[in-house]
């Protein structure tokens, strides 16, 4: 379970970072969302992974750590608000700047050697 869990967190982070580095607003927003999913899972795991255990003290011998769940809840709420803000900002930037690149200018691809010769 640990291997599956940690590799899925790692995969989400990798996808998130890749998408953020695309530098276009839509992929960036998607990347940020993936990154925040990965972060939430990671936070969840910080209280150790356990199956079928209550988060309330005194009901069982073993119990799951309730604190990471509270943390994840907070992080999810904040993440939602921030994503909503960045989506609106991206739309505004698309309108103001005329394109969806985060620098406001679409980089022109460098001419290759072949292109320069011809």
């Amino acid at each position: 379970m640990e291997l599956l869990y940690s590799s899925s967190v790692g995969l989400l982070v990798a996808c998130g970072v890749f998408l953020i580095l695309r530098a276009r607003t839509f992929p960036v927003v998607l990347g940020l969302t993936m990154l925040s999913y990965a972060v939430n899972l990671m936070l969840f795991a910080s209280g150790r992974l356990s199956l079928n255990q209550a988060v309330v003290l005194g009901t069982r011998e073993a119990y799951a750590d309730p604190l990471p769940q509270a943390l994840v809840l907070t992080a999810i709420v904040i993440g939602f608000a921030m994503t909503a803000f960045v989506v609106i900002l991206a739309i505004r930037a698309r309108a103001d700047l005329g394109n969806d690149h985060v620098n406001g200018i679409v980089p022109t691809p460098k001419p290759t050697k072949k292109g320069r010769k011809s």
Binding site: G47, R48, L67, L71, A93, L97
Partner: peptide, 30 residues
Amino acid sequence: KHTTRAALQYVIMNLVGSAVFLIALGIMYG
């Protein structure tokens, strides 16, 4: 126009920063 561009970069930088902050806190708590 210029503010919007600066704001977009600022917001994205800080959102990535928040994600890193949470990862760090998760590790420290763990």
